[in-house]
Design a binder for these strands. Structure first.
Lengths: 206, 206
DNA sequence: TTCCGAATCATCCGTTCGGCTATCGATTGG
DNA sequence: CCAATCGATAGCCGAACGGATGATTCGGAA
């Protein structure tokens, strides 16, 4: 019997996953948590085999942080990230934090079951769409610096502002922008920002 | 007994809502659909009292369209929109299409129950966050024209492009942009696009 | 009917962008 | 160990942008 814990701030999703898993003979839900803090308590107390983790836990610590802390425990559970969609950086940081897999919430139940069973065996499981993003590097890969600049672009900064903020010359900024435009196949900052948000390279939050 | 039909492309969500509703004595789920087409068939065949509708049905027709068609039936069901989050325009078009209410998926189960019961009685139910958006007109209200321009801005169009596309002069475009900047409290197109996406005024899709 | 907002158009002007072309050190990886 | 990539830098130039100001028309609300 694989003991599963759910961490998600959506009651509907928790109920859904629970209902689906209870229909499987070898899977059982031993607990639920809706925030970072109770998630840690839950895992410490119940020692589940697998934790289904939503990365977006509303307010407070994010799923990646929680994942890292859970994996730092004495007998760490396997963590399977189950989320709707996130930034490439989010995915990477979750995996960095020790997540064993990454599934999207719109996955069919069979995929979910398979992923949990695989995870419980210590396998790494990635949703096809996610794997594609990571392996094929779907689309061009932006450098850290470029992502940083994109983030600032979204706040309406001018090249001069960017130069000051990053302690480089305007020429450098323009060079980066040119690279960004090429990679995103755009030719204006506005389109670059829209693209970057659409491709989840940056988030639209300030 | 209130007969409910679910329309959502996420199996997990369908299972979750079903599980939650089955725990209520006066609510029963009579059917599920994951796309526009089967949703219409389902409703025509089963005549549910309330349809829980996700606006984002993946590919194909959107939830608003489906809502409109369902409401055009001889004995139309009440439609309660249950979605994660959408554009102000989406909300309005759903209500235009005849939806009786609008709930967010992260709502606690009790709210969901209340909303379904209210909807079945013919009441209009809006999630607080949604109501606030519509009533208080949270933030400045952009005109249709301004939203249209914002959408095109996100594709990287220049003022001249916009002028040609909208059959007006560049001066007009600049005038609109100035208004947009004022309302969104920004001063560049890039920031305007980011703001607009963040505030769900436009969507980041092309 | 009066008044206001939306949409349209216009001109001026200084600033900023984006394209182009090149160079250079550092780090990483075959 | 040498190629490739990344980050940083530079100058030039035409086009685009954003700010400021003002005007007209039209339709709906007061």
């Amino acid at each position: 019997m694989i003991r599963v814990a759910l961490v998600d701030d959506h009651p509907v999703v928790r109920a859904g996953v629970r209902a689906l898993l209870e229909g499987q003979e070898d899977l059982t839900v031993v607990g639920e948590a809706s925030d970072a803090h109770s998630a840690e308590q839950l895992v410490a107390a119940l020692h589940p085999d697998v934790v289904l983790m939503d990365l977006n836990l509303g307010a407070g610590a994010g799923g990646a942080e929680v994942t890292a802390r859970l994996r730092a425990l004495a007998e760490p559970p396997y963590v399977l990230v189950l989320t709707t969609y996130d930034t490439e950086a989010d995915i990477l940081s979750a995996i960095d934090a020790g997540a064993s897999g990454y599934l999207l919430k719109d996955a069919p139940p069979e995929d979910l079951f398979r992923a949990i069973r695989g995870t419980a065996r210590g396998e790494t499981v990635l949703a096809p769409a996610v794997a594609a993003r990571l392996v094929r590097r779907s689309g061009p890969t932006l450098t850290e610096r470029e992502v940083e600049i994109l983030g600032l672009l979204a706040t309406g900064k001018s090249n001069r502002d960017l130069a000051k903020k990053l302690y480089v010359s305007e020429a450098t900024i323009k060079s980066h922008l040119a690279h960004i435009y090429t990679k995103l196949e755009v030719d204006t900052r506005a389109a670059a920002v829209a693209r970057a948000i659409e491709q989840r390279i940056i988030r639209p939050v300030s």
